[in-house]
């Protein structure tokens, strides 16, 4: 075992390091950088880096879930189903983080943690949709059947979530021009200072989510191997 004592190279080290660097940068520059002065929002606009990014990471993870579902249906490789499962789990964690942080912000800014806001409804709907996905997974014990049914459901689920959070908010604004267009999210006219933090923050948080997911996938592969050998 000469390798054991030597320095261990991590698989795909670069993007993991990038994730940490970007997150350190986000926390430093996010609190110290300048932001435009806006009514109602004021300094809370900074939660663009710590709240909206949760939502972005969730979307990327759930999109990967749907893509792994499609790839599973075309290949039948059960490892892809494992990946899809873990992507959905991490997506849920980031979705819950997005929901909780949104409630903190809404409580300070609008005076109530739960308000009628299309974004908030969208996140709650996505969480429920994927909760149903996990109910389906838990209802089936046979692994190849579970993979197939879950893949079909996840593709349907992702499209429905996309319609709910991307298409319907636009429709509701057109129905109620006065009530829609809440003062918060639509007025982020990202100036160049904020963009310099926002885009790195999105990439950093998303890579962190991918890292969490990758570790879980590798742990579960080892668990499967142990089960096979036992």
């Amino acid at each position: 075992m000469s390798q054991g004592s030597s320095f261990v190279f991590f698989r795909g080290f670069a993007w993991k390091a990038l994730s940490l660097i970007l997150l350190f940068y986000t926390f430093y520059q996010g609190f110290n950088g300048t932001v435009p002065e806006m009514p109602i929002l004021h300094q809370t606009i900074r939660n663009l880096y710590f709240h909206v990014t949760m939502w972005m990471a969730m979307l990327v993870l759930l999109l990967s879930n749907a893509i792994y579902g499609i790839r599973f249906l075309s290949s039948g490789n059960l490892d892809l189903d494992l990946k899809a499962d873990e992507c959905a789990k991490s997506g849920m964690i980031f979705g819950i983080a997005g929901l909780v942080t949104g409630m903190i912000w809404a409580n300070y800014t609008w005076g109530a943690p739960w308000v009628n806001d299309p974004q908030l409804n969208g996140t709650a709907a996505s969480l429920l949709i994927y909760a149903a996905y996990f109910v389906l997974r838990n209802a089936i014990s046979e692994s190849s059947k579970r993979a197939k049914l879950a893949a079909v459901y996840s593709i349907f689920a992702f499209v429905m979530m996309f319609v709910f959070i991307m298409v319907i908010p636009k429709l509701s604004d057109s129905l109620h021009p006065g009530k829609g267009g809440n003062p918060g999210f639509n007025k982020y006219d990202l100036d160049s200072n904020m963009r310099m933090v926002f885009y790195p923050a999105v990439i950093g948080w998303t890579l962190l989510g991918a890292w969490f997911t990758e570790l879980r996938i590798r742990i579960r592969r080892i668990e499967q191997k142990i089960e096979l050998n036992a």
């Binding site: 926390f27 996010g30 609190f31 300094q43 809370t44 900074r46 939660n47 880096y49 710590f50 709240h51 949760m54 983080a97 909780v100 942080t101 903190i104 912000w105 409580n107 300070y108 800014t109």
Partner: peptide, 9 residues
């Protein structure tokens, strides 16, 4: 995220 969002709010 709890820390950063509370700080922001």
């Amino acid at each position: 995220v709890f820390l950063s969002n509370t700080a922001c709010a």
